[in-house]
Amino acid sequence: MTAKKAEVNLKVTLGPLSLPNPVMVASGTFGYGLEYSSLINISKLGGIVVKGLSIEPRPGNPPPRLVETHGGLINAIGLENVGVDNFVNQKLPLLLKHEVPVIVNIFGNTVEEYSELAKILDGVTGISALEINISCPNVKSGGIVFGTDPKQIQKVVSSVRENTGLPLITKLTPNVTDIGEMAKAAVEAGTDIISAINTVSAMAVDINSRKPKLGNIVGGLSGPAIKPIALKKVWNILNSVEVPVIGIGGISNHEDALEFLLVGARAVQIGTANFIHPKTSVEIIEGIRSFLESNGLKDVNEFIGSLKLDS
């Protein structure tokens, strides 16, 4: 009889939010959670962050909405979504049949809309956390307009905080001079967790037609190209605030995910890689487990934040 090998612990705790493992799927890259369910066992995920929701359904931006670049994808979707009521009544009940933490990303045009969304979702059973989107670069009002000004961040986050007891994640944009200042504002206003980064502002043009390649003219860059930027922004945030941080940006395999954990992110979200290889997130979880095992670690928390700075 061989002794059973002790399971590596992958559970992580982010303030009030506990996750079975540190690998979530990012908002806007996994729909409302079930689209990929015939390809992967979504119950294995650390969490699903659903597409950003507004109070009313939004049609989104005129096409073209996508441009592929070297190692990246520029999008200008414009937060097209079914609206919070349709999500709660039609999408969420199906998603809750799977045992996976559901995190709802919320978006408003005004501070009042953010607080209204928080109020509505606070009473809904089965939601693990809210992620406040103040970082979408592709809409005219709201979104990044709030996320680039510490005073606005405070207004939005505190209005949401006043209306929900759910764990609160604030998702920050990299398109600022000092992301640490933005994180401080969010923390002072009551966010429990920071997630970063959203897409990097970007543009693409066609020299033959002499037109922009996106209907919205500008968009946001995601994918492997932004990973080093994301890692540095996460590092900045970790050096500015005490709350747990979720790393997002170009993570495509378990080594990428481990880099974010190494600098101190308590969890990660996988975005664009889901489009290329839908099993990415599940494979990253297994990859992290194997890495920890082969390095003699029994708990992912031993690895988190273990970056060696003195040579």
Partner: peptide, 9 residues
């Protein structure tokens, strides 16, 4: 981008 209805691109 995705082909399955999630990216809305």
């Amino acid at each position: 981008a995705c082909g399955v209805g999630v990216c809305l691109g």
